[in-house]
Nucleic acid binder design. Structure first.
Lengths: 173, 173
DNA sequence: AATGAAATCGACCAGCA
DNA sequence: TGCTGGTCGATTTCATT
């Protein structure tokens, strides 16, 4: 054990470039990635394995278009809980377990939870809000329709220069 | 061309089961998936190709853990714009283009945009909020720290029974 | 940490129900 | 259209440096 941080794995610029590639598209051949990075196929594979072993890459998944499944309605719902007990984690887990709920953020401030959900219709949204209110501890909700949505799901290509530097040059260097 | 909807591709239960599998983990072998679904490898491959051709599967990507990159701070920022011009799309695109911004929701109501972002430190969050305010048309912001987060990124395994039925039994049947 | 060879797996094709 | 079985190419693994 040395003095390096546990949370942040030691990454170099090649790792970051590799992450940007596979986070954007893991369906390309290793050869294509290897060419772009100036590495051999085996080297790319070796680094990918290391990144997965370190927990940097959590997994590889298919991205499903919600619209293709008819989920055309997105809502942002503010959820207030009855009193600040220590049950925030249980409530958060109950909320995310509801069908249709995609993200749950437990926040500081007057709103306790921000819930993002996807459904097909207004009927389904009404039903979902009913199920949110039925969660033990939930007091009040306020929902907003989402008219338009913009996403940048990639993490590694979305870093500020400061964040990049912090990753490439750990504090204990 | 028949009377089927454009938006919602015709999917059967096998397709949904397949989507649940690959949305949870695309790193397993085709044989494993085939066994669980009671299909042959070729059939699985055939359906995957079709789902991708239909736009149901948008792509295959690596999931990177933000914490592994030191992005331990999540914030939800409400953004009010100066006046309801027709530039909401331009503003949304400007917001999501900012480094650190992950989701942007353009909403109906008193708040115009809900922005979810990830950074490493309070310094970086201050900087990000400055950059949000600097976006043309942005008037006022209010940020909340996220203390805890719960996600269900999978779309196909997150459907209400009503939504499942609507997918399996199109209206024009 | 990276390489090259051997085993394994996935992509594609022609044909069939 | 949905699927089968086989072939070829790509990927994963491992011994080696």
């Amino acid at each position: 054990m040395n003095g390096s941080q546990d949370a942040t794995a030691a990454l170099d610029e090649t790792d970051l470039a590799l992450l940007e590639q596979v986070e954007a598209d893991f369906d390309v051949s290793l050869e294509t990635i290897a060419d772009e990075l100036g590495l051999s196929k085996s080297a790319v594979h070796y680094r990918l394995n290391k990144l997965e072993a370190n927990g940097v890459i959590r997994g590889v998944t298919a991205d499903v278009d919600p619209l293709a499944l008819g989920l055309e309605l997105t809502a942002v719902t503010d959820v207030m809980v009855t009193h600040e007990t220590g049950y925030s984690e249980a409530i958060g887990e109950s909320l995310v377990a509801l069908d249709g709920v995609e993200h749950v953020y437990y926040t500081m401030g007057d709103v306790d939870f921000v819930v993002v959900s996807r459904v097909q219709s207004r009927d389904q949204l009404n039903d979902l809000i009913d199920r949110i209110v039925a969660v033990e501890g939930v007091n009040e909700t306020a929902s907003k329709f989402v008219l338009d949505e913009f996403d940048d799901h990639a993490v590694s290509s979305n870093l500020t220069p400061a964040a990049r530097n912090a990753i490439l040059e750990p504090a204990d260097r």
